[in-house]
Design a protein around this nucleic acid. Structure first.
Ligand SMILES: [Zn+2]
Ligand SMILES: [Zn+2]
Ligand SMILES: [Zn+2]
Ligand SMILES: [Zn+2]
Lengths: 167, 167
DNA sequence: CGTTGGTATGTTATGTTATAACATGTAATG
DNA sequence: CATTACATGTTATAACATAACATACCAACG
């Protein structure tokens, strides 16, 4: 049996990801999707998505508005909320309820009921796919109920922050 | 094999419950808990809990404030938020994030990661215990993360409302 | 006693998040 | 060119939440 490097298979949730690639892929994906669905990826929509994918962390609507303002767009609240709503509808953005914030989807290709794992200390947020979370959604139905949307957020502390905590 | 009545085992999530009993039990439970923990179940705290358990549905903080006002208590926002925070800490109230609303816990005895099932049409909300939801939380840990709190909300449509929808 | 510390509540002001309602611009369709 | 659909702009306000400080009460201590 081959020796494994330490932590090689730890599948850390907050581990490094190649964000250069992530960013490019995301842009390509949204472009393709919009063409395929005959939707308009307008400068405003593109900009909002870029803002969110740029540092790939949750941003409040008003943070986004500020950045829109800096970039020369209008920055009144409905602008952000409308575009965010639209991007959410199409699965490219999620709302993190526990933070009143919005985050670019990590994998829009998956039709998913995403789980968000949120460290209360470093405030990192990871989107985990249904399979990976160990969290099994019931059948698409619980008895007598059709699930259309889920909010699943697990808040706690990541190992890095936990180790740093003084007890 | 014995014949079952129709729907006998349907375990409907929004089914009737004996709310007279539910109300009384809840009051008893909170009284016992507060005595045991040497906490003060003050008139204000009791009233807030009663308001929530009374119709057993989610109420916004400002709805609660109005009812406090009617009952002769102060009704400035911090009053409600403080008491709600306290009751939440002790597991007698939950916040329903998707509705910005608060609801009395259906079973404070269970140390639980509750799941809320929310009908978007009739706006009924059911609290489902971990076991019953068919939703399995991961081990207390996902890799390298310690879960302290969960927000699990399933929004959709209940069978009653679905049947009523015109297609 | 009178002080001190803990806990609960009251009050004012403000901060933060989100939407309603209506106006304007622009492009495709017939 | 009128009609429609859609995207964006603008103003105002609604809805949700907290900061900061003031007051009240009570129990324990010296
Ligand atoms: Zn990334
Ligand atoms: Zn996603
Ligand atoms: Zn009840
Ligand atoms: Zn509960």
């Amino acid at each position: 049996m081959k020796k494994k490097k330490k932590n090689e298979n730890s599948s850390k949730i907050f581990e490094y990801h190649d964000h250069g690639a992530c960013f490019g892929d995301a842009i390509t994906q949204i472009e393709d999707y919009f063409i395929q669905k005959k939707l308009q990826l307008t400068p405003l929509r593109r900009k909002v998505f870029e803002i969110l994918i740029e540092d790939h962390k949750p941003l409040g609507a008003y943070d986004i508005l500020d950045k829109l303002g800096e970039a020369g767009f209008s920055s009144s609240p409905p602008i952000a909320y409308r575009v965010l709503g639209f991007l959410i509808e199409h699965g490219f953005v999620h709302k993190v309820q526990g933070l009143n914030a919005f985050i670019a989807c990590s994998n829009p290709k998956h039709s998913h009921f995403p789980t968000f794992v949120i460290c209360r200390k470093c405030e990192k947020v990871a989107e985990v796919s249904e399979e990976k979370s160990g969290l099994n959604l019931p059948s698409p139905r619980i008895t007598n109920f059709k699930i259309e949307k889920t909010t699943i957020e697990l808040t706690g502390i990541c190992s890095t922050c936990e180790n740093a905590e003084i007890r």
